[in-house]
Amino acid sequence: MSTHHLLMIEDDTRLAGMVSEYLSQSGFSVTHMTDGESGLAALRDKPADLVILDLMLPDVDGLEVCRRIRAFSGDMARVPVLMLTAKGDPMDRIIGLELGADDYLPKPFEPRELLARIRAVLRRHQTGATPEHKLMRFGALEIDRDARVVTLAGQPADLTSYQFDLLVALAERAGRVLTRDQIMEAVRGRELEAFDRSIDVHMGRIRAAIEEDVKNPKRILTVRGVGYVFAKQQA
């Protein structure tokens, strides 16, 4: 059984040492870097299965590091990113999600919660169980659940693993209005704070990837005061 390789970019060496030891005992291989530039270099040198990225770094901040990771080519651009943020600062979390982070965890945190988040993100990133309908088509939009790839008119859509699962959850229930709670329950993996805007941020990212006109969406529609619906009939 292969060991997942994690890259932790964190300038707090004491925290990183404790976390690395805990994750190593849980079966992970961990590489630790103390700043953004060395972290990016390490990722280029040895691809990781997941990046644990601190928001506050001494050289390049975590948001910029996340932006650069998503600007990589091929599989490197799709590596899951779990961002560590300052507690009580929702704007940083929102910006991080907009830049393509898959999840976030506010400091201070329990190592067990970090481990649970890592496992949840990795599960979402992997193929997972075989669905009844492996390929879903909605006009020019195709969702391949086996390959975990979304294409629009033959061109790949840039989605994180969490956004892919959100899209699948909506597409499987096309025509049905879902509340934010129902969407989160369908995807599972992590609990969100009661007033967290994460779902709305992710929906905006998904729309940017699959809608011809983001300001006039035809596929994912907002039902004010309720939630979202994936349109059955699409061009």
Rank of each mutant, 00 (worst) to 15 (best):
L152H: 08
G204H: 04
D181I: 13
E211V: 15
D181G: 07
L152N: 10
A153Y: 01
I210W: 14
V168F: 00
M184G: 08
A153G: 04
A153W: 02
I183R: 03
I199V: 15
K218Y: 03
L192K: 12
R180Y: 07
R180H: 07
E212P: 11
A171E: 00
D144K: 12
R176D: 11
N216R: 15
D146Y: 09
E211I: 15
D144Q: 03
D146K: 07
G189C: 11
D200C: 05
I210T: 03
D213Y: 09
A147H: 04
T160M: 14
G154H: 03
L152G: 05
R148W: 02
M184E: 10
I199E: 00
T160D: 14
D200Q: 12
E142P: 00
I199G: 01
E193G: 15
D196W: 02
I143G: 01
E193D: 13
N216D: 11
I143N: 00
M184D: 09
V201K: 03
F164I: 06
A157S: 09
M203P: 01
L166P: 00
E142W: 01
G175Q: 15
R176Q: 14
I206T: 07
D196S: 12
R173D: 09
Y162H: 08
T179S: 15
I143H: 01
R219V: 15
E193Y: 02
T151Q: 12
V150A: 08
E191K: 15
E142L: 00
D213W: 09
M184I: 10
S161G: 02
A209P: 11
G189W: 12
L166R: 02
K218R: 13
Q182Y: 01
R148V: 01
A153D: 07
E185H: 06
Q163V: 03
L167N: 03
A147K: 14
G154A: 06
S161R: 00
R176T: 10
D146F: 08
L166V: 04
L152K: 15
R145V: 06
L178F: 11
L178Q: 05
A209R: 15
A169K: 13
M203A: 02
I143R: 04
K218A: 12
G175W: 14
E191Y: 06
G189E: 10
E191G: 15
F195W: 10
D165S: 02
E172W: 03
D213L: 08
E212F: 05
D181F: 08
T179G: 08
A194F: 08
E193S: 09
V168S: 05
A174R: 03
D144P: 05
G154M: 04
R176H: 12
E172F: 07
V149W: 00
S198W: 01
A147T: 11
I206W: 05
P156L: 03
L152P: 04
E193L: 12
L159G: 01
R190P: 01
L192N: 09
D165N: 03
R219E: 02
L167Q: 03
L167M: 09
I210Y: 14
A194Q: 13
